[in-house]
Write a protein that binds this DNA or RNA. Structure first.
Lengths: 182, 182
DNA sequence: TTGATATATATCAAAATGGCATATGTTTGT
DNA sequence: ACAAACATATGCCATTTTGATATATATCAA
């Protein structure tokens, strides 16, 4: 799946500016689907408008700079449905935290403490985003997705908090030579 | 974190060729850390060798093309440790499956069935990779990481299998206009 | 009144991907 | 026996994407 699909998907749930699309796709409800950045959002929106898949209307605002609000067209919706009906790519999951954790033996205890506490904080934050999403929307399919997220993230949070101490005890355990020399 | 760190990290656990690094980072134990492709592995290995952080030795093999086996140097190990001791970036998780699921109402039942069954299969496969990883290595920090993975992935698998039917019933529920027209 | 934060769009160098080319061996199906 | 498919192994490069920056304005707090 590509950037085009995500943009059509976001616009399918409601009108938005390029700026709002960026926010949705990095912070909000749509941040679990595809990666996206300004450098790809604005050119893609222009192309989609030229192809008639979205409509853009300029709105001048008192004070703030003009914004261009995009909405999906019927042809855009058709195109989006066509794109949805393909076999999805396998999920991508990348974690620096796990690399650091796997190398806990050669890290300082402070590094490991910071890393696990950041991870616990991040997980709590994601859980909160998902719970907000769930309360703000009674769309059944969205409920299914948010319940999935809550289920998985709570499992992660449980493991992290219950095994924090065990991990901390592993920190630096493979640096015996170094610490002896110092 | 960057490609350089991942390569040093992989070589820190054992020597490897560029080809093997790619395999590790997309299929194996190291596939949960950073994204990587041939187009970045080979140039990075050359640069790391020029900087003295890795050693490359050519090995001619009967039949197969020559391979260049890289190993990490002491300076490379130092550099790797330095890179590990920074605050990690937040985990990245991207899922086309969730986008399709959230749009189940405008997808065909076949699309949704394929998507959920693929997701269940993918999750089982990842679980298997993690379990193999756990059995093949008694390094304590690796055990901590694999237990985390198993914990989280089993939670995901439970939700997916227990809520498969509920999701299937949502498929196509927002296409009433279309189906009436056909 | 200065600095930080938020809204809003846009550009562009640098990084990275993903597909292709090359070469050869092994396995599998017919 | 033969072809096709797959695995090992390195490398290139057009296109895509990022990530940082520029521009402009408003608000709010210190």
């Amino acid at each position: 799946m590509n950037i085009q699909s995500l943009i059509l998907g976001i616009l399918n749930f409601g009108d938005a500016t390029g700026y709002e699309i960026k926010k949705h796709s990095t912070e909000g409800a749509f941040s679990f689907f595809v990666d996206i950045s300004y450098g790809s959002i604005y050119p893609t929106l222009s192309r989609l408008e030229a192809e008639g898949l979205v409509d853009g209307r300029s709105e001048s605002q008192s004070g703030k700079p003009d914004k261009k609000v995009y909405s999906i067209t019927d042809r855009g919706r058709e195109e989006f449905v066509r794109m949805l009906n393909v076999v999805p790519q396998t999920d991508k999951f990348k974690s620096e935290f796990l690399l650091i954790t796997m190398c806990a033996g050669i890290c300082t205890p402070e590094t490991i403490r910071e890393a696990i506490d950041k991870q616990i904080g991040d997980t709590r934050q994601v859980l909160q985003i998902i719970k907000d999403m769930q309360q703000g929307c009674d769309h059944p399919a969205t409920q299914w997705v948010t319940n999935y997220g809550i289920h998985v993230k709570e499992a992660a949070l449980n493991y992290l908090t219950e095994n924090r101490e065990t991990l901390l005890q592993l920190a630096g355990s493979e640096m015996n030579l170094k610490s002896a020399a110092e």
